[in-house]
Design a protein around this nucleic acid. Structure first.
Lengths: 347, 347
DNA sequence: ATGACAATACTCACTTTGAGCATAAGTTGG
DNA sequence: CCAACTTATGCTCAAAGTGAGTATTGTCAT
């Protein structure tokens, strides 16, 4: 526990929380703008008791060492559709829409977050919409009509890929722009920027994807399809835009996945039935946007008995042939037992 | 990562996931009942595009060493109300309802899960309802009109409190009943029961609260207010019932909180401004339902610099006076940086 | 054979945990 | 004031877990 207290936590007191529990404000004065942005951007009121409910999917696959997300409309939207009474459940509704729109079967799925504002996207007259978002993991079905909607998620967040060192975009564009913006916002704002983007000696934390996006949005540095702030500052951070708040939802999905692979064996949902340890490593690196220490990575995977040898070896082109492994599905059950990190008593 | 793979994970392929990512079925045949119970119990179809949206709160406090939850209606319901267009956001809507119904201010709040079925509670004619649930943490305002709706959450889940050893209910009632039920369900079902309840040599995992409840529900061993299965088996597991699916939502909240205190310093939301380390420990123990090793607990809290001395000591009645500490709010920011557990390269 | 390129094996120095043992500092009942 | 009790704090020790490298071993393309 203490652990109970081991990581980061943020307070929100009278303000809305972010999907990832990120910091919003600690009661200090000043950035009420920041604090109220996430779940409540505008929206006209009236009194009604029903709302339209949308289901949105962040469908992820990793192919060719790139993390990809399924998109529609030329990369501008995530698969989505309204929840209808005909749907058995939220998840089955989502599955219906995704399979219908992308012709891609959905495997592992988990709920991400429920948003209640679309103000970012719709005009001021837009009705209240509830967006229930899901994260889905699959293998890209190479060699089909697919490849169609799959795009590297780094197209949308170029500053998130640190696999070949700090992305130049940060030092060249993001950092200066954000720093300038933060000038007008007190220490708190500068602090948030430094933490999120690893400036001023702070280490980079790949899990803060959503916070970084929100910061950029708040600073008016990203444009979305419906709202091309193109000339406001004459300066925009690179990265492909999306409709309404789909890019925010994508950021939420990335953040969740980056955090989750660290404590649950979900990566395997993205791997083919058999793979080499290097392939597994590349997959993890693609998701995290960072390189990992090869030897230690293998040690972990093996000592945790997450995989088992298949007996076969990869027919690679270069170097010593690697053994092919398969995921030990048994761990799914075994690990259900683990979990705890409290300094428990007894045994 | 490998870590990426470190804990438990479950597959669901064509079935709905549980709020806590719990196991549902692994493609093996047999328990389709289990697999489809969570989010899709019945509900009549028609074609509509809007739904009623409810906000439900699991409001937690720890007083007198007991974890409490705020209830209404004589302990049969959680604070809740419909989301209306007049609400600024989901969270503010929730706050409005809770404060109006309980007269208790809401502090820390985080979204729990969105359910789409109320079949459990409402009759077959019930319209589609979306329930968006939240977890809230506060300090019980002792010495007010309050104390009113606060109930120990172990009233609802007696088998969850292991602070004074394995609860007798398990060996006496739960285990036999579940075992009998599992007989008719193949190895898989027996396995699930053993894992969830720590039978057959398996260790107890306090985080599986929701899975345990679901298992009991599936087995027809718990009754809810609207559906008092009282005589079906002539045997029911003890534990207070609630309206519709509120008890399930409560279980979801408990599970989430038990998991969260292990990696985020949220316990402090439940503590008074100043406290002794033993009080903090008791709070953690109350939540987890398990005892922790005192010395190691302190070591963790201190070495992680989660607290700082106030200089004062507690005016206790017994034993050596303890120092009073306060939470170091700075860690909220510092910890935002941490997070990673990948065997990263470089530094 | 010679390199190049990976896959694998092992080391080593710390750090982090799980479990206890030992003291210290008040309170309470003679 | 002393003995008995109760809780707070200090410390020790060994077993695991981690971060960073170094060394070897297979294969394929010259």
């Amino acid at each position: 526990m203490v652990t109970a207290v081991q990581h980061a936590c943020f307070r929100h007191q009278l303000h809305d929380n972010r999907p990832d529990g990120s910091i919003v404000g600690s009661g200090m004065a000043g950035q009420s703008v920041a604090e109220t942005k996430t779940e409540e951007r505008g929206s006209d009121n009236s009194a009604g008791r029903s709302a339209e409910v949308d289901l949105i999917a962040v469908l992820v696959a990793v192919t060719g060492g790139e993390p990809r997300v399924m998109t529609l409309d030329g990369g501008r939207a995530l698969p989505s559709g309204p929840f209808e009474l005909a749907h058995r459940s939220l998840q089955s509704g989502l599955r219906d829409w995704v399979e219908q729109q992308t012709h891609h079967p959905l495997g592992y799925v988990e709920q991400l977050y429920t948003f209640a504002d679309r103000d970012r996207g719709a005009g001021p007259t837009a009705a209240r919409v509830i967006s229930i978002s899901y994260l889905g993991l699959t293998r890209e079905d190479v060699g089909r009509d697919s490849a169609e909607g799959w795009r590297s998620w780094y197209d949308y967040f170029p500053w998130e890929d640190w696999r070949s060192g700090p992305p130049p975009v940060i030092e060249e564009i993001v950092a200066p722009a954000l720093t300038a913006w933060a000038e007008g916002g007190g220490t708190e704002r500068r602090h948030r920027v430094a933490l999120a983007f690893g400036l001023g000696g702070n280490p980079w934390n790949e899990e803060l994807t959503l916070q970084r996006y929100e910061l950029l949005y708040e600073a008016g540095l990203v444009a979305e399809a419906h709202q091309p702030r193109l000339d406001e500052h004459g300066l925009l951070v690179p990265g492909r835009a999306m409709l309404t708040d789909h890019r925010r939802i994508l950021a939420t999905g990335i953040a969740r996945l980056r955090a989750k692979i660290k404590y649950r064996p979900v990566v395997f949902e993205l791997m083919p039935p058999m793979f080499t340890l290097l392939q597994l490593q590349r997959c993890v690196e693609a998701l995290g946007g960072r390189l990992v220490h090869k030897q230690n990575f293998r040690r972990l995977v093996e000592q945790q008995e997450l995989v088992e040898e298949t007996g076969e070896t990869a027919a690679e082109t270069l170097g010593r042939p690697a053994k092919l492994f398969r995921f030990r599905h048994a761990v799914e059950v075994e690990r259900a037992i683990a979990g705890t990190k409290l300094p428990l008593i007894r045994s």
